[in-house]
């Protein structure tokens, strides 16, 4: 029995949220949703937890802090020249280097976190995807057998959506 991927496309966020609720109570799976804007209502309806990307950011920041200090201390010790009567390893000015590296590495961590967690750059991202979802429509992707196709379409239509089938 061939599985059909069916996407419900909604003009209104609330319609999509209602359809998600109904779909979750049905036997049909909810593979993913697409939306042109971030939606708290959809996140709540899907029961999503907060992103853990902040851990990447934090790790990046901590690494950056120590890297900045280590770099400044290392370069100072390579040429032990006393400048303006300050100690060779002068921690106060090195705070600036440490601070800038903290921000820089935290941003790298932030970005790596997103790339890893949201699985961007996968070719299959664009499979079973309707390009209108980046424009004005909210999409909900589900799947069913050929026989159940009509029932799934009815569910989407009941909530004000149109249906698109993928092979």
């Amino acid at each position: 029995m061939a599985t059909k991927y069916v996407m419900g496309l909604f003009k209104q966020e609330d319609q999509a949220v209602a359809a998600i609720g109904e779909l979750k109570e049905s036997a049909w799976p909810l593979h993913r949703t697409h939306s042109p804007i971030p939606s708290h209502k959809i996140s709540t309806a899907l029961g999503l937890k907060d992103s853990r990307v902040g851990w990447f950011t934090l790790c990046g920041g901590i690494l950056g802090f120590f890297t900045g200090f280590a770099l400044a201390i290392f370069t100072a010790l390579r040429w032990e020249l006393i400048v303006s009567g300050k100690p060779v390893v002068a921690l106060v000015p090195f705070i600036i280097v440490g601070f800038e590296f903290t921000i820089l590495f935290a941003i790298f961590g932030n970005l790596i976190g997103m790339l890893v967690l949201s699985r961007l750059s996968r070719p299959e991202n664009l499979e079973n995807y309707d390009p209108r979802c980046s424009g004005e429509l909210f999409g909900i992707l589900s799947s069913c057998s050929d026989e159940e196709k009509e029932g799934l379409s009815t569910l989407f239509a009941r909530n004000g959506g149109e249906t698109r089938e993928f092979e």
Partner: peptide, 21 residues
């Protein structure tokens, strides 16, 4: 666009990293 599709998983992390940015 790095395969961006506006999937809920993408938005979930994106909104958070934008805030951190």
């Amino acid at each position: 666009s790095l395969g961006w599709t506006g999937e809920h998983e993408q938005w979930r992390h994106y909104t958070r990293i934008y805030l951190f940015f």
